[in-house]
Nucleic acid binder design. Structure first.
Length: 611
DNA sequence: CCCCCCCC
């Protein structure tokens, strides 16, 4: 256990040694108009005690949990020294580790003297050879604690080495101190002098707002360097000053923004802080940008969206196969009219997915010539299975000059455009809003599908093992939209009670009860007209004729329907008759198995097992 | 100082 003797003075004079150790003599909560409590510490390095020490608010809980009782020896893992007005200097502890609890140390180490914050002596830089002097100092230093805590001095040589290292890490360019460039990851609200060099990886449109607090305009952009990303927002005057100057993908020197804690609710960037431009903000273009990372995409194939759990953000790239006209909707909450345009994008995975653009971006989008769109951070929802939207934090790039885009273009022009594409949209219309939700029949039971207030939709591959012949079809009202069963009046007339009319004819409607099996279980399902006709390979009217004229052939049609496999889309809901409840499963669609697609589905299910 | 990301 060592205190970094004399280190406080060096830090106050601008040194930035790594991981200095201190003793916390005292801590007190300061009164603040701010909603956040702040702690002020009395910190000792064994030689001096300094009182202008603040704790970054995120460390408050260590004190609130009594993890750092007075007299604890700590290592300052991250810290800053800021100059305030009047040349006052304050040390801010950003991150720390307790090396020895005050409950063990119990007393003040060494015999430190109080530093007067208003007259801090300049520490003369000590050359490496000077360490002997330091050791002399150490000899003078008398630890009062004589238990097992041996105290020694900080080693100046080592400290200076650390200092050089840490400056190297911060890309200190030889020359004036002003040429120092900070990394984005090092920015905190506790610094007041910094400059970053960063690439613009997202630039929003200019938006306006109007609320009870006022109105104005703003934009934001994301900045990237090799240490991380940060969001930057500009309001009003700063919009006028910097919006046109900041270009997507270009690199700038940026300084003097206001740092604040990021509201994670609205930011998908990996940074605890974000920054706001202010009247002091300086932004200068930087032309030498080759060393900085460029906007990077982590593209998800459109077929892989199935495995993404909405709502989430994804990077996607696709060819705009369909570009719908721009139209407008009224926002449910805002009650404002918003322009929108739906695109349908496709890729080599054979999927077509809807991508919605909003506002100005929707208005200005030109869908001519099947453009390629890449979206960083598109919002994925489960509407119609899967849908994408370009949200405020997304960046849309049209016809990017990237390898992925060229490969995609090549595929599209050499036959991809003529391909048939699958969609996540559930067949049969009424199952919207769900993903395909693949289930086995055993899962349907074990997961209690259909027990909720709303019906559950799921997709299953199954084989027809039994078809009920009785009551599989009925005579229905011939009116186009009426499927009501008619009464055969026996005189060649059929009466529909719903339409209150008699007709000389009727149509045939089907209600086919089938038992369908997969490798786990079986399930009784009800198939109405369209799916039943498909499974029997015959139109209901023809089948009705057959039933009346040639029962053997009719039986054969039902027989031939057995042991065929389909991809079933089901609607499951528990229904209760006479106090008896049972799961009713309606087949919304029965599609022939596309073995390639189904194989891919199985592959992705296997992938989801994470084996 | 925004922070809605909309609608079907």
């Amino acid at each position: 256990m060592e205190l970094s003797t004399g280190i406080i003075l060096e830090i106050l004079n601008g040194a930035t040694p790594e991981k200095p150790t201190f003793q916390v003599i005292n801590a007190k909560k300061i009164e603040s108009s701010n909603t956040v409590d702040r702690y002020r510490l009395l910190l000792s390095d064994g030689e001096y005690v300094y009182s202008h020490v603040m704790l970054a608010a995120q460390l408050n809980k260590m004190w609130e949990n009594n993890e750092v009782p007075n007299m604890s020896v700590i290592e300052a893992t991250r810290y800053l020294c800021n100059k305030l007005q009047g040349d006052k200097r304050v040390i801010i502890l950003l991150d720390l580790k307790v090396l020895a609890s005050g409950s063990d140390v119990k007393c003040k180490l060494g015999n430190p003297t109080q530093l007067n914050p208003n007259s801090i002596p300049t520490s003369t830089p000590k050359p490496a050879m000077d360490s002997g002097i330091n050791e002399q100092k150490a000899a003078v230093f008398k630890p009062q604690n004589n238990n097992n805590t041996a105290l020694s001095t900080g080693n100046t040589t080592v400290q200076q080495t650390h200092q050089v290292n840490s400056l190297e890490k911060k890309s200190l360019t030889p020359g004036t101190p002003n040429s120092r460039v900070h990394s984005i990851a090092s920015l905190t609200p506790y610094q007041n002098r910094w400059r970053i060099r960063a690439r613009v990886t997202m630039k929003s449109n200019i938006r306006t707002w109007s609320n009870s607090k006022g109105e104005g305009k703003l934009f934001n952009c994301n900045l990237l360097d090799d240490s991380g990303e940060i969001r930057m927002t500009g309001f009003k005057e700063q919009v006028d000053k910097f919006y046109d100057m900041l270009e997507l993908n270009k690199v700038y020197y940026i300084s003097r923004c206001t740092l604040k804690t990021a509201n994670k609710q609205y930011s998908n960037l990996n940074n605890d802080y974000e920054m706001t431009m202010n009247p002091e903000t300086v932004i200068e273009p930087c032309n030498d940008d080759s060393d900085l990372p460029v906007i990077s995409f982590d593209f998800v194939k459109l077929s892989e969206l199935e495995q993404c759990k909405p709502p989430t953000s994804v990077d996607v790239i696709g060819v705009v196969k369909v570009c719908n006209d721009v139209n407008s909707v009224v926002g449910r909450q805002s009650q404002k009219e918003i322009l929108k345009r739906d695109l349908q994008i496709v890729d080599q995975s054979g999927l077509a997915v809807s991508l919605t653009l909003w506002g100005d971006e929707a208005n200005k989008f030109d869908g001519q010539g099947f453009p390629i769109v890449a979206v960083k951070g598109a919002r994925l929802s489960d509407f119609n299975g899967r849908s994408l939207s370009v949200s405020g934090s997304s960046q849309l790039i049209v016809n990017p000059d990237t390898k992925e885009a060229h490969v995609l273009r090549g595929w599209f022009e050499s036959g991809g455009r003529d391909q048939n594409f699958s969609s996540y949209q559930s067949e049969g219309g009424s199952g919207g809003g769900q993903s395909s939700n693949w289930k086995t029949f055993l899962q349907v039971k074990s997961e209690n599908l259909g027990q909720g207030e709303k019906a559950d939709y799921y997709t299953a591959k199954g084989t027809v093992v039994f078809v009920k012949k009785d009551n599989c079809m009925y005579q229905a009202c011939p009116t186009a939209d009426c499927n009501k069963k008619v009464v055969d009046l026996g005189n060649g007339q059929y009466r529909c009670e719903k339409c209150c009319r008699e007709f000389p004819n009727h149509k045939w409607r089907m209600i086919l009860s089938c038992n369908v099996a997969d490798h786990t279980d079986n399930q009784w399902i009800t198939c109405f007209q369209d799916s039943a006709e498909g499974m029997l390979g015959m139109k209901a009217d023809e089948l009705g004729q057959l039933r009346e004229t040639d029962e053997m052939r009719f039986d054969q049609v039902l027989q031939d329907a057995l042991f065929k496999s389909y991809i079933f889309r089901m609607r499951a809901k528990v229904e209760t008759y006479n106090d008896e409840s049972r799961l009713k499963t309606v087949c919304v669609a029965a599609n022939n198995v596309d073995w390639k697609e189904y194989g891919n589905q199985l592959i992705s299910q296997i992938a989801q097992l994470g084996i």
